[in-house]
Design a protein around this nucleic acid. Structure first.
Lengths: 224, 224
DNA sequence: GTCAGTATACTTGTATACAAGACATCTATC
DNA sequence: GATAGATGTCTTGTATACAAGTATACTGAC
């Protein structure tokens, strides 16, 4: 089991860093739902003061993986249903964003997306789970950002850490299933890019729907 | 110009309280975009320490009305375009939620919604801007909550303070336009309730679209 | 006048201290 | 034995203290 990539923690504050580490454990289930977390305990665990822990707890509460209460924060975690719901939300955001990209010129975006796809292929070659999931993440984030809709962008920001962490974990699983599955994942991204390049709103909508239908499908199979 | 209703601050922490006060000023434009806010300055302004201010700043940054930087937080505010975009997001969330409500039994919700509509009428009678906007807010929140989708709920929570404050301000404007406009607003909510009671997904979708189309329209007119 | 360098004041991020409140346990009384 | 109450330990929310970094403004040399 992979630890949270230290490369992703470069330059971030202690608070964010703690949030990231905890988030991974909360989603993985290392910290189990129902457990009670106290700021003091976590602070001593991480060898820091309560200040950054407090910041992290607030972040995680906003993301809905814990619930702040009077005495201690209760762990909610992220159930399979929650991940499905996360896909629902991603679908809403991404289909909205991609529809917007049907209009206007976004050639530089397309070039960057292609580059990310290439990097994903390279990551497969080097068995680099971290970079694969990161490029996957960047691919989706780049599209949403390019859509140029401030509010949708904030919506994304409110879940992007959650999404990144889920991607890391699922990518870990997908890597263990062998190369064909990974190539399929890359292919799905190629289809998205082609969809965008078609500039046809209907085509794009179809591709997005297919993408998330397939993702949900994979999620269910990995459950078994 | 109305202050932030103290009734809405009952039992909340200093941090949230400061966030609410600042949010109102940021959206109103009392604090103008481009200004630089410092934790220290705000702390002395509010007569508190930096801790709750810091919490408030983080909240407001998550909402996108300020941007945290190395030295000071720069005010972004909420432009007319931003409010429009906020309606986009609300439309996404609410149409999703209402579609879900097309299935299942939600009679107790309908009863509560009807009660809120009644309270809105009463608020008009008593010229109670605060309660009118609050009931409006609760109406939408109740629907979203009843949809029972954890992630959508969190999306809502990430904007609900923003929405509440915008509602307060716009309600203030609407009240100044006289009673007919207020009755029209109430009527829009009646239509939503009727839509939900029809339990017909297509009808509901139509009603939601109409609701937000009209809201956008009103927004534009209030600009002139 | 211009530019390099330094000093200073202000910024955030983190640590620590303190206070008020909640929960559990233990005790004393009935 | 059961119950009311006191007590002690835990919790969070807020205040304060400290450290490291940054922008600005000033000073001096050229």
């Amino acid at each position: 089991m992979i630890r949270y990539p230290s490369a992703w923690l470069q330059g971030v504050s202690l608070g964010e860093s703690i949030a990231c580490e905890l988030r991974l454990q909360l989603i993985r289930g290392t910290i189990q739902p129902g457990e009670i977390l106290s700021e003091n305990r976590i602070a001593t665990d991480f060898g820091t003061s309560r200040s950054p822990v407090r910041e992290a707890m607030k972040t995680l509460a906003n993301e809905g993986v814990i619930r702040l209460e009077r005495m201690g924060a209760v762990v909610l975690g992220l159930s399979l249903e929650d991940v499905e719901e996360l896909y629902d939300v991603r679908f809403l955001i991404e289909s909205f964003a991609q529809q917007r990209l049907a209009e206007g010129h976004h050639d530089s975006l397309f070039a960057r997306l292609q580059q990310m796809i290439d990097k994903m292929e390279l990551a497969v070659k080097h068995q680099d789970i971290v970079d694969f999931s990161y490029q996957d993440f960047c691919f989706h984030e780049a599209m949403i950002k390019q859509a140029g809709h401030t509010r949708i962008w904030h919506l994304w920001k409110s879940i992007h850490n959650l999404v990144l962490t889920v991607m890391l974990i699922t990518t870990e699983e997908v890597f263990s299933e062998g190369e064909p599955k990974l190539i399929a994942v890359i292919d799905k991204h190629r289809k998205i890019l082609q969809g965008l390049q078609s500039k046809d709103a209907k085509v794009i909508q179809g591709v997005v729907e297919e993408y998330f239908a397939d993702s949900r499908n994979t999620l269910h199979k990995s459950l078994l």
